[in-house]
Design a binder for these strands. Sequence first.
DNA 1: ATGAAATGTTTACATTGACAACATTTGATG
DNA 2: CATCAAATGTTGTCAATGTAAACATTTCAT
Lengths: 220, 220
Amino acid sequence: MCLRTRINVDIDNIKHAARMKDTLKKENTTYHHGNLRKALIDAALAMIAENGVKSLSIREVAKKAGVSHSAPYRHFKDKDDLLSAVAIEGFDMVIQDTFRRFDRNKDDLLTRFQESGLAYIDFATAYPSHYRVMFASGEHHTSPALDERSREAFMILYTCIAECQSNNLIRPHDTFELAMAAWSIVHGYAMLVIDGFIKDPSDHLKNVITRSLYFGLKYE
Amino acid sequence: MCLRTRINVDIDNIKHAARMKDTLKKENTTYHHGNLRKALIDAALAMIAENGVKSLSIREVAKKAGVSHSAPYRHFKDKDDLLSAVAIEGFDMVIQDTFRRFDRNKDDLLTRFQESGLAYIDFATAYPSHYRVMFASGEHHTSPALDERSREAFMILYTCIAECQSNNLIRPHDTFELAMAAWSIVHGYAMLVIDGFIKDPSDHLKNVITRSLYFGLKYE
DNA sequence: ATGAAATGTTTACATTGACAACATTTGATG
DNA sequence: CATCAAATGTTGTCAATGTAAACATTTCAT
């Protein structure tokens, strides 16, 4: 488990470096901790997976990362800011995974549309802690950066539907609304699964969801 | 403010008495507070509406209800138990509203099916604080009583779909799964609306949702 | 080498959840 | 009606937490 964590951290550091182009001056720098910011995010995620977001405490996160209880405040304004970082990481992960799926289905527009929905569902079940924080927005104050990421994720679905409409694969209707409807379906399913209301997410059920996803939007 | 509080308490006592049939021995009894239990639930809801569940504190709730900081513990085991009571009240409200809608559409099964979905959506937008607590189950420990209520609410949708299937209005398929799918759609939409991801829940959009709700389940 | 910026620590304080000991009210029983 | 137990509310208390301030150390550019 220690090994796996270590690998994840390394991979994430690479991703992180590639993403944060504005602060790329630090690459192989190892100062006090190594990369405390990322370590805190990982520690938070591990603890959320164990006891939920609610009982998450900054002091415990700090302890888990091996630093003093005030150290996190050098990297995050407050607790919300830490959770916001977790959410941003989550959105980045879905976005990247969706693009990976798109690359595997370059030609079939309808499949791409469905894949963009499945990416959401699969991500939620694979990383429930991330997902929970991402959509606990009624709670932690949303930062502009977070808003941008969630919008970016949504726009993938939007663009996908727009392309299908251009090719007469989805009926003409306000694209924004169709995308909202599609998002509702996958988000609702994802939430019910990770909240334990849907116990066994079978393939059967996922098919019904995919069907609803398409049948509500297709030509009648 | 004192006066208003008092009036609310009285009104709520009436509602409360009508609902809780098992403890109907107390009707016009006014002991220490009137009905602190209900007053605390109302205070909690008001404060959740203002600042979210996250920053809700039992001490503030007690202060708002005009009692000492420890008084709530005579009525609720802990904070989770208070939130659990809020959630139960919420489920009871949706259930009752759904039955009201059913009474208005005694004959049309498909309409009843759609109404059972709309009841969810409308309740969520009308009582977002309730709804948020009801489905924050990944967080507060779920009590058996709460589990029962959420199951009861779900069973309405289930029964509705089963009846439609009996009358060949919805395609044959595991009823449980179809109900889960329908639930996913309305729940996802509701969550995105109250979490601010869907800014203006237009009738257009609700129609797309209703359409998806039906088109995914109907005969092809 | 040096000084400023970044990063981590210690100390401190107010808020909170929750328990225990105590006080008061209510309602049933004689 | 007196009395007593149960229900309800209060006061006092403690540990955990969020977070700010003052201080210490490391890093990095010059």
